[in-house]
Structures are given as C-alpha cells and as structure tokens.
C-alpha cells in the first residue's frame, strides 16, 4: 500500500466507532423527537387558532373574540343564503326579517362570541392564588432557610413539602371541595379556588424561594449582623431584596401551573357558563364568593361537550390558542419584572 505513513494514533474506522456513532444518533433522535412532539402540539394549535384570533383586515385581531362572552352558534339557510350567527345576532336578525322566525337552524352551544369572561376568571384565579402562595411560600422559605435549625420538626416540614409536591391535582380538587366548598360553606367560589390552587403550588414556591435565598451570599448576612442589625432587619434589608428576582423567576413555574390546571378548579371555582362578569356583583362582599369561568375549564367544556366540526373548531382552537398565549404572557411579564429587579440589585 502506498498510503501515506499511518502513524500510531491515526483514527481508524472500526466497528466500535460505528456503533458509537449509531448510538449517539439514537440519543439525538430521541431528543429531537421530543422537541418535534412539543412543536407539533404548539404548531397545530397556533396554526389553527390563529384563524380565530387574527383576521385579514385591520386591526388584524379579532377583538370580539377577546371581548365577548360565549354564545350559541346558529347555522341556517334563509332565502337561499347560508348564515352563521351568534345568539344575539340571530335574534336581531329574526326581528328584522320576521319571515325568518321559523327558519330551521342547527345550533352549537358556546361556538360563537368570545371568551372574555374566561380570560377574566383565569386572571383573577391566577393573581389571587399566586398572591396567597407567594406570601405563604416565601415566608415558609424564609423560616426554613434563615431561622430553622436542623431538627425533627424541620425534617417533618421538609418531608411534608416533598410529599405535597407529589399529590395529584385532582386530589387537591377533592380536598378543596370537601374543605372550602362544603365544610366552610364557601360554595363554588373564587376564594375556594384561590386556596385550592395556592396549596397546590405551595411546594413549588417554597422550593424556588429557598433556592433563591440560598443563593444570597452568607457574607451579606454576617456583615449586616456584625453591624448590629437584628435578624429581621438583616433579612428584610439585606437578604430578601436580593433573593426576590430569583423568587419571582422561579415562581413562573408555579404561575404556569396555576393557570394551566383544570382539575383543582373543576369543583371549587369554575362554572361552565356564567352570564355576569365577576365585578357585576350586587355587594362587594360577594365578589369573593362567586364562581367564575376559566380558560382551562372552558377548553375542557368545548372539547368534550360539543361535537367536533368545522363550526365548533373555531372556538375550540381559538380558546386553546389564547390560553397558550396567556400562559406565555404571564411567563414573559415575570421575566421582564425579574430583569428590572436584577438591574437594581446586582452583585
């Protein structure tokens, strides 16, 4: 052979190398398959939902979908033309064309109008439950990280937190139903939903907060204490402000979970349909004790309780699209807030 001199460490193709390459490709394929699946779900919903949410002419956004309540959709033929219209429009139409009063129509519930009450309900649920969870969670984390000394009690608390994290969401729903709805007599209400959801994300918030508190250098605490600060002054002025960005960032996880969960609010806070908006209550005190519509529950309702066809698809994909978008928006705003705080406290 006249090949150039082969040195001792020349890499040579052999079976071992080939099998390694093949194995690596397998791992790579697994990774990208997962990504593709995720992308597939996102893509389908974005692609199909975009048709509902956007439109071709200005302002390019289908505002009624965001500002109207859900209505039934009526499909009928009148004087040789086919119409699709929502409940209110249909009634107005019948008034205008008395001849149409007896027209035969197909109808699908919730398939017209928009999802405004659901968006409002979801925002209320998320804000309320995250406030409760953050207060409880951050305080608990402060105790665990700053005050607690190792002992049986703390081991117990940690065990409880770990176990709480694994409890299925539907069990939280049952618990919330048994305790808040029935035992406390709050009925299906915002308040019941808030506490149920708050308890559900509590472990996430505690763990995230503790991690952020741990990341604050020990020197800050010692330096402060050595200047004669009390423990509480140290925590308030020299620990929590620096941990806050981290706490907020990690709470995104919790927020996404709260916004996305259906099972816990099914029997504690969500109504299939409710005509009034949450602020249209007679007394201010009733605000907390009213059920709301919520995006995830609405998706459940429109995907399981009405048939699948071209007419209903509009609202089904549209709602799912908006819901994904809301979750993404919450995450994005939390990230912005974090960056803002980060630039203020930098070390």
């Amino acid at each position: 052979m006249s090949a150039p001199a082969v040195h001792r460490f020349q890499s040579q193709p052999n079976a071992a190398r080939r099998s390694e390459r093949a194995a690596f490709w397998l791992f790579r394929a697994a990774t990208y398959l997962v990504l593709a699946c995720g992308l597939g779900v996102f893509g389908t919903i974005f692609f199909k939902g975009a048709g509902t949410v956007f439109k071709a002419e200005a302002p390019f956004i289908n505002t009624t979908f965001f500002t109207d309540a859900p209505e039934s959709l009526y499909i009928f033929e009148f004087e040789g033309k086919k119409y699709e219209m929502g409940d209110r429009a249909f009634r107005a139409f019948k008034e205008k064309h008395p001849a149409a009063a007896k027209v035969k129509s197909e109808s699908y519930v919730y398939s017209a109008g928009g999802i405004f009450p659901c968006i409002v309900g979801t925002v209320l649920l998320v804000v309320g439950s995250m406030t409760i969870a953050l207060v409880l969670g951050v305080c608990a984390a402060i105790y665990l990280n700053e005050y607690a000394r190792d002992g049986l009690f703390i081991r117990f608390v940690r065990l409880a937190i770990l176990n709480l994290a694994g409890v299925p969401s539907i069990v939280f729903g049952l618990f919330g139903f048994g305790m808040f709805v029935i035992y406390f007599g709050w009925n299906v209400s915002l308040l019941a939903g808030w506490f149920t959801l708050a308890f559900m994300v509590l472990p996430v918030v505690i763990t995230a907060s503790e991690e952020s508190l741990k990341a604050v250098p020990k020197g800050f605490r010692e330096g402060s204490l050595a200047l004669g600060a009390t423990k509480w002054q140290t925590i308030r002025k020299n620990v929590v402000p620096y941990a806050l960005p981290g706490i907020l960032t990690s709470s995104i996880l919790g927020i996404a979970r709260v916004a996305g969960e259906t099972a816990p609010i099914m029997f504690t806070a969500a109504y299939v349909v409710r005509d009034k908006l949450p602020w249209e209550v007679e007394k201010a005190g009733e605000f907390l004790f009213q059920g709301v519509m919520a995006l995830p529950y609405h998706i459940y309702v429109v995907s399981s309780k009405i048939p699948q066809n071209d007419y209903t698809e509009r609202v089904q994909y549209g709602t799912a699209f908006v819901f994904l978008l809301v979750v993404a928006l919450i995450a994005a705003s939390s990230i912005l807030l974090r960056n803002h705080l980060r630039s203020r406290y930098k070390w």
Binding site: G219, L227, G228, A229
Partner: peptide
C-alpha cells in the same frame, strides 16, 4: 446580642460589601 455587636464590630476575611 444586637447591642453587643454594635459595640464589637467585625471585618471579615472575604470583603463583603453589600450590593
């Protein structure tokens, strides 16, 4: 202890200015 530490200050090995 707080009063004590006000009167007995401390400087650490690793400088720890607050951010």
């Amino acid at each position: 202890v707080i009063e004590l530490r006000k009167r007995v200050g401390m400087v650490f090995q690793k400088s720890n200015p607050f951010p």
